[in-house]
């Protein structure tokens, strides 16, 4: 294998030094077999610039911490291998989210806010009986819930969404998918009308203009287009029947 010299153009920005405009800084290093951006960024920090900021946690595409724009495409840095990259790669933080420094963005706060707005928990009046066996559930339903629950909150669908880029209150594909997760769950006793009041509007599912960058960029393959369409149809039927109380 011929060793390649890789160039990375990485956005630098420190909120503590607002006088310094965000800019691209060039780094060079030699490619190694099996190298991922996780290895690259840590090497750069430890060997070239200890102030470089970025986020990793699980480094196995499970936790969703390392979403960023790799040559413009929103994806997880940990699962991006250098062998799939050109000689020169540009790394930018995900848009929409608050920039904490360099490649680090505050996805956690955004997702927490979205979770509150969509009331992302099972709504039920039933209390738990420790002595009773569990309520039965068809395994197909369990799988359907899991399909939506698989979202890892990395924010790639939000960063890549044109609407989310200009409308700060739009809950995006992640938010709509979250609602879908509870809609299919028989344990959640919310009515269609209650869901409609949360997502049957421009900040919810009707804010989606159908560009599907979310669906194209989801790094864990959640079927976002299907989820968006599912919630849109449900909400249209709820909207159709909606009556003022």
């Amino acid at each position: 294998m011929i060793e390649r010299e890789l160039t990375f153009r990485i956005m630098r920005y420190n909120p503590d030094e607002p006088e310094k405009k965000p800019h691209l800084q060039e780094f060079h290093l030699t490619e190694e077999p099996g190298m991922s951006l996780f290895v690259v960024l840590n090497k750069l920090r430890e060997e070239q610039d200890p102030t470089l900021r970025f986020d990793f946690v699980c480094r196995a595409s499970i936790c969703g911490s390392c979403g960023m724009l790799v040559n413009g495409r929103p994806t997880l840095a940990c699962k991006t291998l250098t062998k799939d990259l050109p000689d020169v790669t540009t790394l930018l933080p995900l848009p929409v989210f608050k920039l904490l420094g360099d490649l680090s963005v505050d996805t956690g706060v955004w997702f927490r806010d979205m979770s509150f707005r969509t009331e992302s928990w099972v709504h039920t009046d039933e209390t738990f009986d420790p002595d009773a066996p569990e309520k039965r559930m068809d395994n197909a339903v369990a799988l359907e819930i899991y399909e939506a629950e698989r979202c890892i909150e990395c924010g790639c669908c939000i960063g890549g969404c044109a609407t989310a880029n200009i409308k700060p209150d739009f809950i995006g594909a992640a938010g709509v998918n979250r609602v879908a997760r509870f809609m299919v769950d028989p344990r959640d006793k919310r009515t269609e009308r209650e869901y409609f009041e949360v997502v049957g509007n421009e900040d919810g599912v009707f804010g989606c203009i159908g560009l599907m960058a979310c669906d194209d960029n989801c790094p864990v393959g959640v079927p976002l287009r299907d989820q968006l369409a599912y919630v849109r149809r449900k909400m249209a039927s709820a909207g159709w029947r909606y009556q003022k109380v």
Binding site: W121, V122, E126, F128, P130, A132, P133, E134, K135, R136, M137, D138, N139, V141, A142, L143, I145, Y146, E149, D185, R187, D188
Partner: peptide, 18 residues
């Protein structure tokens, strides 16, 4: 066993017997 069932009550979509 109680803890598992409680998590089911709160929303974990445990894989079920088919």
């Amino acid at each position: 066993p109680i803890a598992v069932r409680e998590m089911a009550h709160w929303g974990v979509p445990w894989t079920r017997v088919t």
